[in-house]
Nucleic acid binder design. Structure first.
Lengths: 107, 107
DNA sequence: ACCCTTGTTCGACTTTTGTCGAACAAGCTC
DNA sequence: GAGCTTGTTCGACAAAAGTCGAACAAGGGT
């Protein structure tokens, strides 16, 4: 069971940005960044189905944002923080420290 | 002719990221950033039609990334650099200094 | 006035993306 | 091994996004 985890330098920056440009995935990334460690996939319960969650984690992985460790039937996910900070200094910080996930719905 | 230019703080960060997560738009943003000043829409010739270009410029504008000045039949576009740097410190720099627009197609 | 230039808007079309339930795969545990 | 748990994969579907040509709008020449 090989996981496709690309070299970060081989990922177009647009793919990285696209991966971050989704509410669900941003929540996941925030959670990962906040905890700092690794989390089982099942940890991320944001009112989405298993299938959808699996999909988003795949997008993140293939965009080079996360790394996954397989342990039995469980998969532990973690942010590739160091690599990201090295290749895109400031990007992750900027995104993570950004205001609220969705602004207070002022229209 | 009112142009819809939102307050940056009212734009979800995912919208900003989505706006940047496209090759054509990223090229436009790079061009704007490099030049530093303002450019007529027609400046951006990336092998796309007028309609498509207009569309991308609209996306950028509505994501709060650019500001547009109308002068006769021409429209001048510029990056909202200062505001962006203030609200998302490091983001733009990170994106702009990123390697090549599309990595050397190694597959 | 007429035409040319600059852009936008309007369908229309295609591709991509997000979402789900259901089926499947692979480990655990008893 | 039967059954449970954890995730992935497979259609299917709807919504969103990118693209274009054609029509339109509004200024600026001459």
């Amino acid at each position: 069971m090989e996981l496709h985890e690309p070299e970060l330098r081989d990922v177009p920056v647009t793919a990285v940005l696209a991966a971050l440009a989704d509410d669900v995935r941003l929540q996941i990334v925030r959670a990962l960044a906040e905890g700092g460690g690794e989390y089982a996939c099942g940890t991320f319960e944001f009112g989405i189905s298993k299938a959808t969650r699996s999909h988003h984690l795949k997008v993140l992985r293939e965009a080079g944002l996360t790394r996954t460790r397989v342990a039995g039937t469980t998969r532990f996910v973690r942010l590739r923080r160091d690599e990201l900070d090295r290749l895109y200094p400031g990007l992750l910080d900027a995104v993570l420290t950004a205001p609220t996930p969705t602004p207070p719905t002022r229209d």
